[in-house]
């Protein structure tokens, strides 16, 4: 269900992700994310709970998806799966904890810091905003914030990641990986509140 929504977002955004990664990267991120989610989605058993579907997707991204961002998204999904399995009754808290641990794993592996113009520049500020709120999580607001943070990578000079070798020429184009993980928040918002669709930006227009 969640992965199906993430796949729908990646299908809609495929052309834009490819365009951004061609401008500042190696051009394959749109394919990798879409094809990874297609492959993962096909392997999720019917009626799977959140932990099972994110674990299935994590393994697929870690084992089968090319590039660097694909397996890093696998680490993110793996952490969400572990947290969801540990506390199935409190989904919001589990997802935030999983995303936080997954972001830490991505930073341990990729050594990117905030401001380096990578997918961390979507994840870290979005999660900082979530940890500051009390009570139930407004996932629509979180998705809107994530997309804004991802778009703001267009103003960052790359120091790590896909665009680091072209330097300032990346300015003006958002980081494809950051947009790619922002789409996960878009999917989370619909997953937690199917009525939020009209309040969310169109993923094809990011």
């Amino acid at each position: 269900m969640l992965i199906g929504l993430y796949l729908a977002a990646a299908e809609a955004a495929h052309a834009r992700l490819t365009e951004y990664d061609q401008a500042a990267g190696d051009g394959d991120f749109g394919d990798n994310l879409r094809d990874g989610l297609r492959g993962a989605h096909a392997r999720i058993p019917d009626g799977a709970d959140l932990a099972t579907e994110t674990e299935t997707a994590a393994t697929y991204f870690l084992d089968e998806v090319g590039g660097t961002s694909g397996p890093l998204i696998g680490l993110l999904l793996r952490s969400v799966a572990s947290a969801a399995a540990a506390s199935p009754s409190d989904v919001d808290a589990a997802v935030v904890r999983g995303l936080t641990e997954g972001t830490a794993a991505i930073q341990r592996v990729g050594e990117a810091r905030v401001g380096d113009r990578t997918l961390v520049d979507c994840l870290a500020p979005t999660l900082d905003g979530l940890r500051g709120t009390a009570g139930p999580i407004d996932w629509t607001a979180a998705a809107t914030a994530a997309l804004a943070h991802a778009r703001a990578t267009a103003d960052l000079t790359p120091r790590m990641g896909r665009a680091s070798y072209i330097g300032k020429r990346a300015l003006g184009t958002p980081d494809a990986g950051a947009i790619g993980v922002a789409l996960f928040f878009w999917a989370l918002a619909l997953y937690r509140d199917p009525a939020s669709r009209d309040a969310l930006p169109d993923p094809a227009a990011l």
């Binding site: 870690l62 660097t68 397996p71 890093l72 696998g74 680490l75 793996r78 794993a105 341990r108 592996v109 990729g110």
Partner: peptide, 9 residues
């Protein structure tokens, strides 16, 4: 990166 991802797993 690739050894790092494997280490996390």
């Amino acid at each position: 990166i690739n050894f790092g991802i494997a280490a996390e797993r």
